[in-house]
């Protein structure tokens, strides 16, 4: 479930990045790198787990599945927080700067 959640997040973010490219005003690319990196690493985790559990890998206990989904959502939330910090620090549209400085008439 964690792998699935991050993969969906990565696909959605990549589609959003492509829609906004090449301007990249919202820095969605940051989210793409975060989620794709994590998805690839969890894919390896899943392969090793499959090698150990075989077909049982596809029938997890509901409680485990729920916990994994909860973890996946938390990972997505953490990624969004990191993205927001990068967006506000880099401030590509100059919104933060405009809020801090008021033009003198």
């Amino acid at each position: 479930m964690t792998l699935l959640t991050t993969t969906f997040a990565a696909v959605i973010c990549t589609a959003l990045w492509y829609k906004g490219a090449p301007k990249s005003e919202m820095k969605v690319g940051v989210l793409c790198w975060l989620y794709w990196g994590a998805s690839l690493m969890w894919l390896v985790d899943a392969i090793f787990e499959y090698a150990e559990l075989h077909e049982k890998y596809f029938t997890p206990a509901p409680a485990d599945m729920l916990n994994d989904f909860y973890l996946g959502l938390s990972v997505v939330a953490l990624g969004l927080v990191i993205w927001l910090i990068v967006l506000l620090v880099k401030d590509p549209k100059g919104v933060v700067k405009a809020a801090l400085f008021r033009r003198k008439n």
Binding site: T6, W33, S39, L40, G79, I82
Partner: peptide, 10 residues
């Protein structure tokens, strides 16, 4: 970015 992003979330 792939490596930092992935290992950070992991």
């Amino acid at each position: 970015k792939l490596l930092w992003g992935g290992s950070g979330l992991l």
